[in-house]
């Protein structure tokens, strides 16, 4: 659904409130954008395939512009065979590089993110245990999957016909969430304060569900 369609829908839902006129289009767009992202966080857990994309990158490439979250799967091709890549944190680098039980090779590579870029090991600072020579090049053409960030809908730079990129079945949830957020502008001070507090709590809860849920979903896919 496009930015303009979202706005129209929210205004329609709010039409019985006489103070609707005080809400600027920009503010409604902003609430819709917040709502899209909140709903994204909730639905990516239950139906992650709808929110997943792949990208091919090389060592040192920046994160894609719509990067949201690593989707738990990546591979590197060695002699026509796809080798899975493990996602690690920076404090694990040394372990992958030096531990004899866990030495990263092109057959068992790892990826980590630093400076908002992808880095792979083994890299050229390492020696290939098979040949005893330094790796001539870093890994490149690595394919990895990620959850993309929903399209931004706020601001004059975003055209009214911009699509939010969300599945159709999420629309009702988006409008309901956006209307709830608009309510903070349509109530008296005390109620508005409570509404802000509620919006804040719901946003944090959506995050908590996302981080707990996505981990468990990814674990299921590993088990499969």
């Amino acid at each position: 659904m496009t930015k303009a369609q979202h706005r129209e829908k929210v205004i329609n839902l709010l039409k019985y409130f006489p103070t609707t006129i005080k809400l600027s289009d920009d503010l409604i767009d902003r609430y819709v954008e917040h709502a899209v992202r909140r709903v994204w966080r909730q639905f990516v857990v239950s139906d992650e395939a709808d929110f997943r994309k792949s990208v091919t990158v090389a060592h040192g490439d920046p994160l894609p512009a719509d990067w949201g979250w690593f989707a738990g799967s990546a591979y590197y091709t060695v002699s026509g065979e796809k080798k899975p890549i493990t996602f690690i944190q920076t404090q694990e680098i040394s372990h992958r590089k030096t531990s004899k039980m866990n030495l990263a090779t092109a057959n068992r590579p790892s990826v980590y993110i630093t400076n908002q870029t992808f880095k792979f090991i083994p890299d050229t600072t390492m020696t290939n245990p098979a040949t005893g020579l330094a790796y001539a090049a870093n890994l490149s053409s690595v394919t990895l999957w990620y959850y993309f960030r929903p399209t931004s809908l706020f601001g004059s730079a975003v055209a009214d016909n911009t699509d939010d990129g969300m599945p159709e079945y999420t629309q009702g949830f988006i409008h309901r969430a956006a209307v709830e957020m608009c309510m903070e502008q349509l109530q008296d001070d005390q109620q508005a304060y409570q509404q802000i507090d509620k919006n804040f709590s719901e946003s944090m809860q959506a995050n908590a569900k996302f981080f707990a849920g996505i981990t468990s979903e990814q674990m299921k896919s590993y088990i499969r």
Partner: peptide
């Protein structure tokens, strides 16, 4: 927004709760 090399201070998933 990540991915543009700008080192943004706020994680995009926390944008709404941060500003709220």
């Amino acid at each position: 927004d990540p991915g543009v090399g700008a080192e943004p201070p706020i994680h995009w998933l926390f944008e709404e709760s941060w500003v709220t």
